[in-house]
Design a protein around this nucleic acid. Structure first.
Lengths: 184, 184
DNA sequence: AATAACATGTAAACGGTTACATGATTCG
DNA sequence: CGAATCATGTAACCGTTTACATGTTATT
């Protein structure tokens, strides 16, 4: 699996960026397939720097050490090589961890209201994601990125359609069977 | 997020099981939204036992300590209560980590053959998943589990359709732009 | 007798989250 | 002047993977 270090190298191939900017990019543009917290990001950048795959123009050297805390990272020639090797090795892998599906697997233990709330919650998440996806400037993007967004939109639409179509059916069915264990 | 301990409690609600059986169930029946290795599972079961949420009939007590190594776990009354509380708290959350989508985000660094291989790989994975999903005995399942499987099938179909439909388009487009950096 | 599948467990390392701690800059 | 946002980093903890270590049972 592609780790955060490799993702950072890849993003830095597009141009120099600070840790803060990388964080923002990952958690907005890459949100649908990757996230990263600061606590994960800064150590990852530190390791990349130690390996000389990136360099930073930290203001830690000369006189005005205090002024700007911003530290911009640039990928090295070696970093680009390492990234290319990593990305070439990448296989089509994905891993989904879903509390939504897990909850349904154990739906017998849930009251009908909770089932309804889960479906509503999932629909809301899908809608939020959808809004973000369609607002991406597709026309000014390389073909690969565009493809990823369209793929994600296709899945999002199918999920939404399913929940809108079958959501009410399941709610009715489960409401019937939920009479057994009255809300304790 | 639901952790492995909670998943185990939920599965043990259906009846007593050994660690090995739990491993099997998780990595087949729950595969599309959760996985677990032995190295994660056994410590999780140990913690649950320490908390008295499950008990084991380990053969570690009397005379024939050697014979059957199999250790069957049973959920306690307290365990059921804790599980119900956990599952009620569950929100519709999901987290996808996708090397497939990440690779496309960085597609500029990939040769056309690799792009084709990624799409083929993803289609193969989807097909494998699909085969497993449709072979599930839907008729003998509680409504909730069935719903989860049908939801996953709906998404799987949309993904497959997209890749079959647009896969060749992207390959052609990227092949054009890939002339720049001839395979080093 | 060999092999596959069943079965349990530990230890090191990894990758990540959450919470904490601090401070600068910009905008209203 | 206060709030939001920009900005960097650490430490404790969590859950998991990978590799290791061991042994049994069933099948061929």
């Amino acid at each position: 699996m592609l780790n955060l270090q490799t993702i950072c190298l890849g993003l830095l191939c597009f141009g120099p960026k600070s840790g803060y900017e990388l964080h923002k990019t990952i958690n907005t543009d890459l949100k649908h397939f990757q996230t990263a917290s600061f606590g994960a990001l800064y150590p990852a950048l530190g390791k990349l720097e130690a390996k000389k795959l990136i360099t930073s123009d930290g203001k830690n050297n000369s006189i005005q050490a205090s002024s700007l805390p911003k530290k911009v990272y640039t990928i090295t020639a070696n970093g680009r090589t390492v990234f290319k090797v990593q990305i070439q090795k990448t296989r089509a892998e994905e891993k989904l961890t879903s509390d939504f599906l897990a909850a349904f697997y154990f739906a017998e233990h849930l009251p009908a209201e909770k089932i309804a709330a889960l479906i509503d919650g999932q629909l809301a998440k899908l809608q939020d994601e959808y809004r973000e996806l369609i607002s991406a400037p597709l026309s000014r993007m390389p073909e690969g990125k565009r493809f990823g967004i369209r793929y994600t939109i296709a899945i999002n639409r199918a999920a939404t359609a399913f929940l809108k179509g079958e959501g009410s059916t399941i709610q009715a069915t489960l409401r019937r069977s939920s009479k057994k264990w009255s809300t304790t």
